[in-house]
Amino acid sequence: MAKELNVFIDNKPGRLKAITGLLKEKKINLRALTIQVREDFGLIKTIVDKPNEAYMTISDKGFACALKEILAILIDDSPGGLDDILDIFAENNININDSYAFIIDSGNKAVYCVEVVDIEKVKALLEKNGFKLLDDQDLYGL
């Protein structure tokens, strides 16, 4: 499974930049980034090419951060690509807590990252239906 790096930041100007600045310093590349925002704070979720190094760098600076396993599903970058997956989710009554997608090869391949409660169960289900789940190597070797 793939690793997502989550970082807690205050909801105020300059805080996201504090994190990207650290990544830049260590020459760590971002594949994807999304933020869940509350009035007081934000939770940054990122896919980076060196998750462990990024985690060490950011936590050393005193930030609250965590590495999490998530499902990264390879999908076709074509109309209906995402819908095919969501069919399976809907049929099996699986709720999505959070998700985001990014394109890795325009018109060809994209990645759909999704958070669910029972990650192992959903992983097995997707694989049974012929979807490819990307692990760290796959994802960062893209």
């Binding site: 807690f8 869940q36 939770l43 951060c65 965590a66 999490k68 807590n97």
Partner: peptide, 12 residues
């Protein structure tokens, strides 16, 4: 507290 942080919005 950094050491107790699990990265889950629902927990926060």
């Amino acid at each position: 507290y950094s050491k107790m942080f699990k990265g889950e919005i629902s927990e926060l």
